[in-house]
Design a protein around this nucleic acid. Structure first.
Lengths: 188, 188
DNA sequence: GTCTATACACAGATAGAC
DNA sequence: GTCTATCTGTGTATAGAC
């Protein structure tokens, strides 16, 4: 089992660092220390390997997200603010959102982990927004689904801006801007 | 000059549709009708071709953005709202933001067009936000730079979500959510 | 300027020994 | 299970004729 996990870990690292196309069998072998035979014994194709790796990444991100929200103190609104302003590595990008533009995502198995993660985050944000509205912390005139989509989009778009500028501050600024707008919604 | 432009147009189309890595010389030749010799006569390397193509794309997007804002009726705040809710092809993605995660962007010449475009949009949004604040349409307690970054990020992130879900509505929802938050800021 | 022919490295995968 | 050797196609470019 050791080699299989080494291979998966190498694949996860390369998918984050370089994306799907640049995750060549050679690169996976070099990073994991496994040979060709070992790689193709455990995973029939490159897509199979990537799909398995991305499933794990989605599970990790979801667990991390839930743990963060559960530990964040204060009201539902406080939790959303804390999530928005959470420290992030803007230059590396989102481990899943990073892949959104790869042609390989035409494969449903590679796309599914992204939907799983984004769907989970959006649902939990919607719940928190509804809770905040019920507690009178937020104007109840807005659409929770749209607001949650906007908040996720700010983070994902912040990664895009930070990577374009090669400057981690862009993501932080975008998140701060979204937080400021949300404050206003809280006072409205 | 005809072949050169044919080649550039093919490159622009392929960069949008498939990204830099998948823009192979072969694909450019097939789409443009030019031969190898012609391609490498006009552009020494693939990066040269992509850099020239992206410069044109940035110029086109900036001209289109300026034209849209100039024609949009109403106050500065109205113009921002109109831009946020502008119809977009969420499934295709942003012609420049789409490339943010490619390793080829380590090349400064390929990254520059993205910065040029994003920088231009952000500056103009900052101006409009300042103008709206001066006219009393917007609370003046916020940071224009952060707010502008957040608005661009919502659009870029909306593209990411739409491509992940293969559903153009995500981008529209994110934009609508951002617009709703901005409304609150206007009333605050 | 544009073409066809050629070159070389690497991606992605298979074969078969151990 | 893991290894090395091998195979085919393609990406990226160069050479040289027209």
């Amino acid at each position: 089992m050791s080699k299989r996990e080494d291979i998966l870990n190498a694949a996860k690292a390369l998918l984050w660092e370089r994306g799907y196309e640049a995750m060549s069998p050679r690169a996976v072998m070099d990073l994991s220390g496994a040979g060709q035979g070992s790689l193709y014994h455990h995973f029939r194709t490159k897509q199979d390997l990537a799909a398995a790796a991305l499933e794990q990444v989605a599970a990790e991100l979801i667990a991390d997200f839930d743990a963060f929200l559960d530990r964040a103190p204060g009201s539902a609104l406080d939790k959303i603010r804390a999530w928005l302003l959470r420290p992030r590595d803007g230059l590396s990008g989102c481990r899943l959102g990073r892949l959104a533009n790869e042609t390989a995502l035409d494969d449903e198995r590679l796309r599914a982990p992204l939907c799983l993660y984004f769907g989970h985050v959006q649902r939990r944000l919607e719940e928190l927004l509804a809770e905040a509205a019920a507690d009178g912390l937020l104007s109840d005139s807005f659409n929770e689904k749209e607001l949650a989509a906007a908040l996720i989009a700010v983070i994902q778009g912040g990664y895009v801006l930070s990577r374009a500028w090669r400057d981690a501050r862009l993501l932080s600024q975008a998140a701060a801007g979204a937080c400021a707008m949300l404050e206003q919604t809280a006072q409205g």
